[in-house]
């Protein structure tokens, strides 16, 4: 039971990270109708920028952890958001009204570019950092000496996710930008006739998605204490799975899907086999799409004849 509780905590934390990435997929899919293949790599770039910023701050002799975290968060969000903007500008915008396969291949190409760019720029080896945030709470001490722990890192990851999700939901439901986004999602031509700057709105969608991916990248760095250039691919596919599981186009759905994928992966590793945890995640993607193609919270699609 204690073991299960511990896995539950671990799964929720991992799920928060997936959820943050999944939001980027779900928003872009909702508005432009394409899978942003490069999004996983944007997450990886976010992790790298967080790592580098952290190293620089520490070498400058900064010791106040909360201040460091805040600066790292802001810098990483800002620069990664610019990456998201640039990717959209270079690889997707020229293909906006083109054939469906062209932007998809362009996105795959962009994903290769980002992966190998960071390999070239930062080397192929895994980059470990010492634990930045230590300590935690013991929730329960079992009879056989098994301890259920909730570390401070886990608390920070979950709280950051909740705060950002709340902020973001508010943004989409209450601001001009959010309204423009929903308008573009419904009908881009109509939205532009009504004075919505479609290009700008789509750009902003990519920017926000990338910023959230950067947060996920930083959380990943804090939680696992390492980044590498290849971490975007698998995390990206899992986050996309999460977005689909939750119902693509739905923000709460993306978060819910992320939590579920995190839980499934953790519990599978704990009780079955670590080697096949990715197989489990991908199989779930297939099963969900077959039996629940609109996801948990998605809108059903009616076929027009």
């Amino acid at each position: 039971m204690d073991y299960f509780a511990q896995q539950l905590i671990n799964g929720l934390v991992l799920g928060s990270i997936y959820g943050l990435i999944a939001i980027g997929y779900t928003m872009v899919y909702g508005i432009v109708g394409m899978i942003n293949f490069a999004h996983g790599d944007i997450f990886m770039i976010g992790g790298f920028i967080a790592l580098i910023t952290f190293l620089i701050l520490v070498s400058f002799g900064l010791t106040a952890i909360p201040l460091i975290l805040l600066v790292v968060l802001l810098v990483s969000m800002a620069i990664t958001a610019l990456y998201g903007w640039t990717v959209e500008r270079i690889a997707y915008r020229p293909l906006r009204h083109s054939f469906r396969l062209a932007p998809m291949l362009s996105a795959i190409g962009m994903s290769f570019v980002l992966t190998n760019y960071s390999q070239v720029a930062q080397g192929a080896r895994v980059k470990p950092v010492p634990p930045i945030i230590t300590g935690g709470y013991t929730l329960h001490e079992g009879a056989e000496g098994f301890v259920v722990q909730l570390s401070n890192v886990q608390i920070i990851v979950v709280i950051t996710t909740i705060v950002l999700l709340a902020l973001f939901t508010w943004l989409v439901s209450n601001t001009r930008l959010g309204r423009d986004m929903r308008a573009c999602e419904q009908d881009q031509t109509m939205a532009s006739l009504l004075g919505v700057d479609v290009d700008r709105t789509i750009s902003m969608t990519f920017v926000i998605g990338a910023a959230l991916a950067a947060v996920a990248g930083m959380m990943y760095l804090l939680y696992y204490g390492l980044v590498d250039f290849f971490m975007g691919f698998v995390a990206g596919i899992k986050a996309f799975t999460a977005a689909v599981l939750g119902g693509i186009g739905s923000l709460p759905g993306a978060m819910l899907g992320g939590l579920l994928i995190g839980l499934i992966e953790t519990l599978w590793s704990a009780y079955f086999s670590v080697e096949y945890k990715d197989v489990a995640a991908f199989s779930i993607l297939i099963v969900v799409l077959i039996f629940l193609p609109t996801g948990l919270l998605g809108r059903p699609e009616v076929e027009k004849v």
């Binding site: 899919y29 109708g33 394409m34 899978i35 469906r100 998809m104 596919i237 996309f240 799975t241 689909v244 080697e275 096949y276 990715d278 197989v279 991908f282 199989s283 993607l285 297939i286 799409l289 077959i290 193609p293």
Partner: peptide, 28 residues
């Protein structure tokens, strides 16, 4: 058989997942 009623990008991502599953099974 199970996936072909999916459309467009969903089919793409399922086939991608299938390719990865095959590779992971071969590895493990």
């Amino acid at each position: 058989f199970p996936v072909l009623r999916l459309r467009g990008d969903y089919l793409a991502i399922v086939t991608l997942a299938f390719g990865e599953i095959i590779r992971l099974v071969i590895i493990n």
